[in-house]
Design a protein around this nucleic acid. Sequence first.
DNA 1: GTCTATAGGTTGATAGAC
DNA 2: GTCTATCAACCTATAGAC
Lengths: 210, 210
Amino acid sequence: MAGDPPKRRGRPPAGGREAILAATLELVRERGVARLTTRDVADRAGVSEASVYYHYRDKAGLLSAVFESGLEPLRAVGDRGLSADGERAEVLTTLARPLEQFLDQALPVLMAAQSDAQLREQLAGYMAENDLGPHRGVRALGAYLAAEQKAGRVLADIDPEAVAFLLVAACFLRAAQRQIMGTVAEREPLPSLERTVQTLDRLLRPAPER
Amino acid sequence: MAGDPPKRRGRPPAGGREAILAATLELVRERGVARLTTRDVADRAGVSEASVYYHYRDKAGLLSAVFESGLEPLRAVGDRGLSADGERAEVLTTLARPLEQFLDQALPVLMAAQSDAQLREQLAGYMAENDLGPHRGVRALGAYLAAEQKAGRVLADIDPEAVAFLLVAACFLRAAQRQIMGTVAEREPLPSLERTVQTLDRLLRPAPER
DNA sequence: GTCTATAGGTTGATAGAC
DNA sequence: GTCTATCAACCTATAGAC
């Protein structure tokens, strides 16, 4: 985003900071925050415990950093407009699938934060400050659908954002089911993304095309 | 549900067990599991800490009980069939709103369990055993929509379960946004339930009725 | 920037009397 | 069934040397 300065003075960073962050993220996803100890973070990162406290003031600071890095990909959504080329079902899928993949990464962190009121508020504050949230996906997808509607390819008298919301929600629930029910989710599968997109695409077609 | 036995022998229960469970549920919702201590549970329930361990073997046992009581209302969904009377939009709303209300209660508990891998597995196991999960809502709503389709009131060539899934997912995401983003969610509102149902209802209408 | 060592505080769980 | 008292384990965070 911001171009890095051309040359750097002084001793180059040893990478300890990044290793700690990565280790924390791994452990949170594996065991959950509740079982996260600074000791284990230090062990996995290959540094000492004190080093963790040197780079991140305290455990809360460390977790803040984890949230921010975990949510970072969401900024991209809505920044780049949707490329409106190709079949509509295809366009919808190319938005929905990355969204679902992002959620698979982010949900463990988002949900982990719900286990502690203080963390929860921290996270909510961060999301508010940076305008992050599901509305981002809804807006982006809604704009595309509104354009389709203007072009006469979508039923005239419906709310594009409501439809966008339905699709974003579908991605969310699919990811959430995987997160909450784990592998057991496969025994009671929800409709696939393809089937869902297909159905939605069909529903959107204006009367003459049916 | 099951009629209680007419008479009970021995000393009547003092209600301590229920008080402990209720106190735990309250505290989990307020502070999150991470900040939950058996000490605070005992204090709020008005009993001693040892009493907690008497009734529930250990902390994990206590939390299991909390999960089960928190998810209990979900059993009802899908057990009672949908009353298919009235306007369709109205029927959809009368299913969706209670679902969302249930989720507002259950999500804090569901998400809290994600903070600990052991709890997460425990919860997933319980849900699997009792056939609980989002598919329950999808099935129930899907059956209603399939009937509507058979009666010619829904577009013929779409998958009713995929549509049901969209609506259930919408409820889920709305509840999840409230849970994750808290009061901040109100600044970036998602489409309302009414608007969503209305839009979906309109999309479903077969061509002649448009 | 990174280490070792340790202080200081919290918590889950048990023992044993009532 | 409920209590008081207590322990052993664990974990965050800091101090101070290199």
